[in-house]
């Protein structure tokens, strides 16, 4: 398409150039015209001035804006990175604090439980000691009662034996002999 158009254009130029050849030819190739060369001189002046203005004045402005934008984006990214690091630190601190508080709570709970257990043990010991004392006292009382009962039994047995001897043998035994016999029998029974 482009080649076709270009070749058509060149064809047209050449035919037009031929048509105009009788008159002048292409104005671009008319180097007899002083304007053809003077335009090059002005071109040099204008192009060089444009180059100087662009390279010294206009383009550095664009560069400054682009650089400040790049610096600002980099700064913002750095700030975001710092903020993220701070947030991560805070999260870690929070986690550590939570863990520490949990551990402390656990410790105080177990201390309280231990203290309560110890107190309960002391109370239980005291209670059992009291009970034991009561028990011992009761046993003593029982033993005393039993001894008293046994003492009474000896007297009854001696009287009963004296009566039985008197009725069966018709003799009155010596109370000391009877008491000795009763003691022997009681000792044999106790053994």
């Amino acid at each position: 398409m482009r080649g076709l158009l270009a070749s058509t254009g060149i064809l047209l130029i050449s035919s037009a150039a031929q048509a105009a050849e009788e008159k002048k030819g292409m104005p671009q190739l008319d180097f007899a015209n002083p304007l053809t060369l003077s335009q090059v001189v002005w071109l040099a002046i204008i192009f060089f001035t444009l180059y100087l203005l662009l390279s010294r004045w206009a383009l550095p402005q664009v560069a400054a804006v682009l650089e400040s934008r790049a610096a600002r984006i980099a700064g913002d990214l750095d700030a975001a990175r710092d903020a993220k690091a701070a947030a991560d630190g805070a999260v870690a601190e929070l986690t550590a604090a939570t863990r520490k508080a949990q551990a402390e709570a656990q410790a105080s709970v177990s201390t309280a439980v231990d203290a309560a257990k110890a107190e309960a043990a002391v109370k239980a010991n005291a209670a059992s000691a009291k009970l034991e004392a009561q028990l011992a006292e009761a046993e003593q009382r029982i033993a005393a009662a039993r001894a008293a009962a046994l003492g009474a039994l000896r007297g009854v047995a001696a009287t009963a034996t004296a009566d039985v001897v008197t009725r069966l043998a018709g003799i009155t035994a010596e109370p000391s002999t009877i008491e000795q016999a009763v003691d022997r029998a009681l000792a044999a029974r106790a053994a």
């Binding site: 304007l35 001189v41 444009l50 203005l53 206009a58």
Partner: peptide, 23 residues
């Protein structure tokens, strides 16, 4: 008087447009 052509005038206009776009 200085053989300044209409071609050079267009160069000036073009340069002014480029500079003003940037400015």
């Amino acid at each position: 008087s200085v053989n300044f052509t209409q071609s050079n005038l267009m160069m000036l206009i073009a340069s002014a447009l480029i500079l003003s776009l940037l400015y």
